[in-house]
Simulated scan of single mutants.
Amino acid sequence: MAVRHFIALIHKEPESGYGISFPDVPGVIAVANTLEDALAEAEIALGFAFEDWVGDLPAPRTLDDLMMDPEFVEARQQAVVAAIRPAEPVSEAAQ
């Protein structure tokens, strides 16, 4: 897989862990108690999602493109925006 970065939204509510979601990869999320663990889990979650992906991988939009998406603009108001690269799929890492 070519190296791609996906824009992520990092959410943190008081008294809860960190949650990370990807506007361009719906349904892929990561949750952990610390930011460092959540970022690591997000890389792994993307890698696993893409390992068994059927069809073309989603093309990540640029931040400029996302900023023109009203849903993204609304979602990011309560989040921190980050770029995350998928972890190498387990099948490739073993080679």
Rank of each mutant, 00 (worst) to 15 (best):
H5N: 08
H5L: 12
I7D: 04
A8I: 02
L9M: 14
I10Q: 07
P14N: 12
E15P: 00
S16G: 05
Y18H: 07
I20D: 02
S21N: 13
P26F: 08
G27M: 10
G27T: 02
V28T: 09
V28I: 13
V28P: 06
N33V: 07
T34F: 01
T34H: 01
L35G: 06
E36Y: 05
E36T: 14
D37H: 05
E41F: 03
E41W: 00
E43L: 04
E43N: 04
L46Y: 05
G47W: 10
F50L: 09
E51W: 01
W53H: 09
W53D: 07
P58S: 00
P60N: 04
R61Q: 05
L63I: 10
L63K: 08
D64A: 13
M67C: 07
E71V: 13
E71K: 05
E71R: 10
F72A: 07
R76F: 09
Q77A: 11
Q78M: 14
A79Q: 11
V80A: 10
V80R: 13
A83M: 09
I84M: 05
R85A: 11
R85C: 03
R85E: 09
E88N: 12
P89E: 13
V90Y: 06
V90L: 10
S91V: 12
E92S: 15
A94F: 14
